[in-house]
Structure formats: structure tokens, C-alpha cells
């Protein structure tokens, strides 16, 4: 058999203070990673007959509700350049991807604890699984968006090429936040509740439902401290040609994400050293 995962000398020692990321090892375990990702996708859909429907249902229902409220209350969401329905739907799907993946990565250690007690694999695999597998639902929920884009004739331009970068930045942010909270929640379950609350409130303080133009100019600086603000606007800019690219805001989001992923993974590895016994 050509399986060579363990075909070398393994030295087992007490955890050292040196925290480094073993990307080579992660690569060696890629088959396992893929298999766990597929499993996770299958689980999400295996018990649902109306599989696809449920994936769109939430953003579509919210779209309906908000358009209804907007039309009947006459509220101004300050969305310019594109239609409100496109603005809202595109915001909702990436926002839900962010929220669900962050929650899932934060819980991934707990979820895989039984496996970690019996099989060795690089610990980073656990949070990577929901991060990637949720992309699938994200993709499915983008189908109505594509239909709406074609319907309304608001086509993307060359900026579409930047889309993978923006999504990657979002994934980095998710992984950073997720691993950080996964480490915290090994100390105390309070962290998990805190994260849930923050993510819940996040919907209302991020440019998902309304445009940041609605915010007073002076408050905007504070508003854009939220790393998802830049991501949400950049995501839309990649999809809709007329929507301006929020360069500085997105640069901030990117920097924030990079800081978070470095901190998150360091904390994750540290937590692993202390808590491998307590899973």
C-alpha cells in the first residue's frame, strides 16, 4: 500500500512552548480532511427531502419580510446604485455563511472530541471542516442571487475576479474567530454564549439590511471597526459593477482577519496542549 502518512520517524514529546503550524502535516492528512468535509455536507442534507429549498428558505424569507417592511413603512435604507433586493439578498447569504461557519468552527472541537480521543490527526482539521463544508450551502443559496442578477440585468464587471479574494478573507476571519472561541470554550462555555450574542447583534450593526450611508458620517469610523462591514461591501462590489469597492475598509478587514487568524491559531494550539487530557 502506498499510504505513507506515518512512514517516518515520529517523536513524541511533551508540548513545548514553541507554537508552530505544521502545514506539511496538514497536507499529508488532506484525504482525511476531504472525507470529513464530504461527510459533513452529507450529514447536513441527508435527512432533508427538500434539501435545496431549506438552504434558500431563510435568506429568501428574510428578503420577503424586509422588502415588505420597507415598502409599507417607507423606510429608507440608503442603498444606491443597485436594487435593494440585490443588496439585501447578497448581504444575507454571506452574512449567514459567516455566522454559521463561525459558530460551527467554534464548536468543532467539542463536536470532534470523540474522534480526537481515538484517532490522531492534526487538530486544525476540525475547524477547517465546517469552514469549507458550509461553502457548499453558501453556493446553493447563491443560486437565487444569480437568477435575480440575470432578471434585473445588474451584471458584474472585472471585479468579479476579486470575489475569491474577498471570500478567502471572510474565511480567514471565520477561522481566526472560530479557533479563538474554540480555545476559550475549552475553559468555559460562557465564551460560546458570548459569541452567539455578538453574532446575533452583528446582523444589526453590519451593512446587511441597510447601507452604511444611513449612518452619520462621524459615526462611520466606529461603524467600520466591525471587520465584516468591509467584507460585506467588498462582496457586493465584486458582484455588482456599479457598486464602488470599499478599498480602505476592506484593507482593514483583511488586516483584522490576518491578526485574528494568527492569534486564533496560536491560542488554539496552546489550548490543545493544556486540554488534550480533558476532552
Amino acid at each position: 500500500m502506498s499510504n505513507n502518512i506515518h512512514d517516518k520517524e515520529i517523536v513524541i514529546e511533551p508540548p513545548s512552548g514553541l507554537v508552530h503550524l505544521n502545514l506539511r502535516e496538514l497536507y499529508e492528512f488532506r484525504h482525511m480532511l476531504w472525507s470529513m468535509i464530504w461527510k459533513s455536507i452529507r450529514i447536513q442534507f441527508s435527512e432533508l427531502y427538500l434539501k435545496f429549498f431549506w438552504t434558500f428558505a431563510r435568506p429568501l424569507a428574510m428578503l420577503g419580510v424586509f422588502i415588505f417592511i420597507k415598502n409599507y413603512s417607507g423606510a429608507n435604507m440608503h442603498v444606491s446604485n443597485i436594487s435593494y433586493s440585490l443588496y439585501l439578498y447578497s448581504g444575507l447569504i454571506i452574512w449567514f455563511y459567516f455566522v454559521e461557519s463561525t459558530n460551527a468552527t467554534a464548536k468543532s472541537v467539542e463536536k470532534d472530541a470523540a474522534l480526537m480521543k481515538k484517532i490522531y490527526f492534526p487538530r486544525l482539521i476540525s475547524p477547517l471542516v465546517p469552514l469549507v463544508s458550509n461553502l457548499y450551502s453558501f453556493g446553493i443559496s447563491a443560486i437565487p442571487l444569480v437568477v435575480m442578477i440575470i432578471w434585473q440585468g445588474t451584471y458584474p464587471g472585472w471585479k468579479l475576479l476579486l470575489l475569491p479574494l474577498v471570500i478567502l478573507q471572510c474565511m480567514i476571519l471565520i477561522l481566526g474567530t472560530g479557533t479563538m472561541f474554540a480555545s476559550f470554550s475549552l475553559f468555559s462555555k460562557d465564551a460560546e454564549r458570548f459569541l452567539k450574542l455578538v453574532l446575533y447583534l452583528g446582523l444589526f450593526v453590519s451593512p446587511v439590511i441597510y447601507s452604511p450611508d444611513k449612518i452619520h458620517a462621524k459615526s462611520q469610523l466606529v461603524y467600520f471597526l466591525n471587520p465584516m462591514a468591509g467584507t460585506l461591501l467588498a462582496f457586493r462590489s465584486c458582484l455588482f459593477n456599479d457598486f464602488p469597492f470599499p478599498f480602505w475598509q476592506w484593507m482593514y478587514s483583511l488586516a483584522f482577519s490576518l491578526v485574528f487568524i494568527i492569534a486564533g491559531i496560536r491560542m488554539y494550539r496552546r489550548a490543545d496542549m493544556h486540554f488534550a487530557d480533558k476532552l
Binding site: N3, N4, I5, H6, D7, E9, I10, V11, I12, E13, P14, P15, M116, K117, K118, I119, Y120, M273, A276, D277
Partner: peptide, 24 residues
């Protein structure tokens, strides 16, 4: 420890070859 599921507190173990552990 030999399956790398928990870290040792002291000491060292070296394993040469492909390991499969059936702990459960």
C-alpha cells in the same frame, strides 16, 4: 501517548514505522 492522542508530561517516545491504533 504512543498514538499521539495525549501529550506526555515528561520524557520522550520515538516511533519508527506506520502506526495504527485501535483504542476503541
Amino acid at each position: 501517548i504512543l498514538s499521539r492522542l495525549v501529550y506526555p508530561t515528561e520524557g520522550k517516545a520515538t516511533i519508527r514505522g506506520r502506526v495504527t491504533s485501535l483504542l476503541e
